[in-house]
Design a protein around this nucleic acid. Sequence first.
DNA 1: TAGTCTTTTTATCATTTGATAAATGAGGGG
DNA 2: CCCCTCATTTATCAAATGATAAAAAGACTA
Lengths: 191, 191
Amino acid sequence: MEQAKALNFMDFAASLTDLEGEAKEALASKLHTKQYDKGELILETGTVCNRIYFIDSGLVKTFFYTNTREFIMRFFPEGKMFTVLDSFLTRQPSTYSILTLESTHITYLNHADLEQLCARYHSMETFFRKLLSMAALNMMDRIGNTLEEKAQVAYHRFLKEQGKLLQRISLADLASYLGITQVSLSRIRSL
Amino acid sequence: MEQAKALNFMDFAASLTDLEGEAKEALASKLHTKQYDKGELILETGTVCNRIYFIDSGLVKTFFYTNTREFIMRFFPEGKMFTVLDSFLTRQPSTYSILTLESTHITYLNHADLEQLCARYHSMETFFRKLLSMAALNMMDRIGNTLEEKAQVAYHRFLKEQGKLLQRISLADLASYLGITQVSLSRIRSL
DNA sequence: TAGTCTTTTTATCATTTGATAAATGAGGGG
DNA sequence: CCCCTCATTTATCAAATGATAAAAAGACTA
């Protein structure tokens, strides 16, 4: 169920479901693109997330703040789809923000358009269902890991599973992804 | 998006989507029921989870082991649907087990039947999509909380949000849900 | 009621992590 | 090449949690 390496939104969709010609055209006609510089906010806390994004190139993080610290839900590099799922589904203001960690080019689809496409084309609903399945699986994994692991184990797991990303994110960001402080991560790395 | 209080599988499905008569009949014809005593395993680690469950009455936990401890993913009381999502979707052996904490009556649907229903009826696909949405939202919530919270805060949040359940589960189970030891939980409660 | 088993609490000590501050390192612009 | 800024590491101390053992409290049965 790992998402295939897709170059763009349409390929990605096709890798999940066979979209018949008509659905495919309808989907393509609803897509938009946008370019962000490094360090730009794609979505800000308190805003409803109206879009589902595909990353053509670049890297983003989804995160939230508490009183004292920042916590990162996930990183998304090129070839992945993402959104702030709770806000996107419930239409409520998001507690998460999205920030680009690199110059990033995205393709997106609006919530209303997706709903309409799902209502009209069974195959689009299948696509969306599989997308949600992947999202749910990823999150389930993350819960299990977060519950189970000491920071040290979590760090090494990250190295193994997403080591490539380490070249592209700061240690501060990795720490807040792991749920620890940057100082604590530095300590772990030195062992 | 909170699941409405449903008395049975069919009502639950209807609360999420309008199933047309034919789909409704097809679904109803695929449902099975089963009764478990308290403390019975509904699913054991290493087995593929082939079913999606609705709890007519009772209470279960989904959990996994590490070398040293047990961790609980979630509790599910009557009126809720659940499955071991990763195994159910990927068809791989589950790392989670399901155990009844009370005498429990369930209604279930097999994976193959669900797939078939989804392929045949657009409305069933919508139902499944919404089900996955709810599951994903719940898990997202849990990640955020797990990342963010100190055990003490997590305990009080649980009291507030699911306090009723506390009457029905052991403190040991609550501890492993919160990701701490039972001794640690006892300490927190005494503050 | 006494006895037994389970659950919960208390106590002690070692380990992990957070908070804070300071030192070191790396990169960029004058 | 020097200065500035930002990222990372190191050091110190306090707080939270885990591991272990033992005591206390409850639940159930004979």
